[in-house]
Design a protein around this nucleic acid. Structure first.
Lengths: 190, 190
DNA sequence: ATCCCCATGTAATTTGTTACATGATTGA
DNA sequence: TCAATCATGTAACAAATTACATGGGGAT
């Protein structure tokens, strides 16, 4: 009623960056590493999203920026969340109808396994198992190093990633025969 | 080597529509229903993507279009895959390094559970459980009605959806205490 | 009366990806 | 010598979402 219309979005790259900064000041480069590690199983973002997001947050006064000169490299810009940033984040976190979207070329491809060459079906399956194994290595690293220091939320989310990927790997191994058995893939051409 | 550079994409809305048409001719409206049912757990597409995709496929000669006049409603356009369309699809299906992306506002939000009001954390969790329950209802419907007629690929993919969502639901129920216990959510404000 | 289903499509907007641009330091 | 890490940012592009535009028929 007279307020700004925020439409949908909310938990976008900007807001996630803001949330990451609640654990302490960081640069865009630092945040990218976080997207590649602890957030990798459910939220992707590249430099092309992160840097504009931080600029925009700074423009809104939700983060402050300290430029640290360096020799040879560009100035390191370290962002810190402000009190207004905290308020904005808490407001975003009040939205409870959150979505959970999957976009899987992997599953979309396998829907048409009967049109594929058997060796390609195998390759698709193997490729996915390797991705899962890579994630599981990452998880083991966290468990040895740092997970004990995380907030409960981070631990819950990582546990979810572990559980889901483990289920996927097991399912693939136990059901691959459905796609690679003799009855499958008759129609595939060269 | 002189061929067209196809870059990344491949298993996009266009190609998935093409794949769906291998089971028989259909309209954009029909395909939308398929995106909302059997594909809903791993690939979303709205009319704004589907209709342009079909137009584009028709322009490339990968599908043919029969316009069926109707009274009151717009002409029903029924698309059918062509031989060139089959070739294109088989080529797309040779790409084995498929991705599987998750974009979860749900998990991104819970990472910051310690900044949320306890009742909002509960609401987020409940909302997700309801979405999962809705999907599981859908699965039961398929299992009673039609899944037996599907190709092995479709059955494999549906089974994966079942397994993953079941794991998520169980994980939430067994670990929600991590987020809602007394030790959690001290810093949350009104 | 009202809502949902049928049925298509365009335009504007949002959002994110990829490629480009630069370049020193460190370890294998 | 080569690759990786550190470090930032813009511009062009691709893709999808949302809102808009239209409207009859059938069920509650």
């Amino acid at each position: 009623m007279g307020g700004v219309c925020r439409r949908v979005c909310i938990m976008d790259v900007k807001t996630v960056c803001l949330g990451m900064l609640t654990d302490g000041p960081a640069s865009g480069y630092d945040l990218k590493k976080e997207f590649e590690s602890s957030f990798s199983h459910f939220f992707a973002a590249g430099y092309g999203s992160i840097y504009p997001a931080l600029s925009s947050l700074a423009g809104q006064g939700l983060v402050s920026c300290e430029e640290i000169p360096q020799d040879g490299k560009p100035d390191r810009k370290v962002y810190a969340i402000t009190e207004e940033g905290f308020e904005f984040l808490r407001a975003a976190l009040r939205k409870t109808d959150t979505c959970h979207k999957v976009r899987s070329e992997f599953l979309a491809t396998l829907c048409f396994a009967h049109l594929m060459r058997p060796e390609d079906v195998e390759a698709v399956l193997e490729h996915r198992l390797q991705d899962i194994a890579a994630f599981q290595d990452l998880v083991r690293h966290f468990e040895c190093e740092c997970v004990a220091d995380w907030h409960a939320g981070g631990q819950f989310v990582l546990g979810m990633g572990k559980a889901v990927t483990e289920t996927m790997a097991t399912y693939i191994k136990e059901n691959r025969h459905m796609l690679t058995g003799q009855s499958a893939a008759k129609a595939a051409a060269g």
